[in-house]
């Protein structure tokens, strides 16, 4: 996201804090789609995802005064969304530790490419491949899924992701690479 865009967001925040709620509505309209794209793929239930998307903005509005302008509004918003998703996993008694597990330096896909590696992706038309990736995402560990979605669906940079998750940059990159390799392996298994 460009710095000009970031400045526009900060101006909208300033206006909201001055009492112009319409300014916050503009922020909601601007970010409802990216937040829904992220939460929808994390919770896999449309109605729940819509509720959570609303909750993200309500929480953001409630704590807007604590927003520090030196950070980007998007990273702040995604952190709220991520915390909400973690709460959801915890309530469902699904171990959320994979969200915050310590850095696995060197745990990334530093593997060699096998000699007879099959070409899986090329087997499918693009639309079918997208459908299969969506299915494979459901089976991805949550820590990898979250970063994969942020990187490929939301278009966040590695630096932004590292800031949101408070993780080393190398760990974030490794997890994204790992996620892609897991998806490739899942596609291989299903084809």
């Amino acid at each position: 996201m460009s710095s000009m865009n970031g400045e526009k967001d900060k101006e909208l925040i300033r206006r909201t804090l001055r009492g112009e709620t319409q300014a916050f509505e503009l922020l909601v309209r601007k970010y409802q789609q990216p937040i829904m794209n992220y939460i929808g793929r994390m919770v896999r239930d449309r109605e729940m995802a819509l509720d959570f998307t609303q909750d993200v903005f309500v929480r953001a509005y409630a704590s807007l005064r604590s927003f520090e302008p030196k950070y980007k509004f998007t990273t702040w918003l995604f952190r709220i969304a991520s915390n909400l998703v973690i709460d959801h996993w915890r309530k469902k008694k699904i171990p959320a530790l994979s969200f915050s597990e310590p850095a696995e330096e060197g745990g990334g896909p530093a593997l060699d490419v096998p000699d007879n590696e099959a070409s899986v992706a090329r087997k499918f038309e693009l639309a079918e491949l997208r459908r299969r990736i969506e299915k494979a995402l459901e089976r991805l560990p949550v820590s990898q899924r979250e970063l994969f979605v942020w990187r490929h669906v939301n278009g966040l940079t590695y630096e932004e992701m590292a800031e949101i998750k408070n993780l080393p940059l190398g760990t974030v990159k490794n997890r994204v690479y790992q996620a892609k390799e897991t998806i490739r392996r899942l596609l291989e298994e299903s084809s």
Binding site: Q32, Q33, M36, N37, G40, R41, R46, A49, L50, T53, A121, L126, L129, R130, I133, E134, F148, H152, V153, K180, I183
Partner: peptide, 10 residues
């Protein structure tokens, strides 16, 4: 393919 995953309806 991953970069062009469709947006979820809002």
């Amino acid at each position: 393919a991953a970069l062009s995953l469709p947006a979820l309806e809002v």
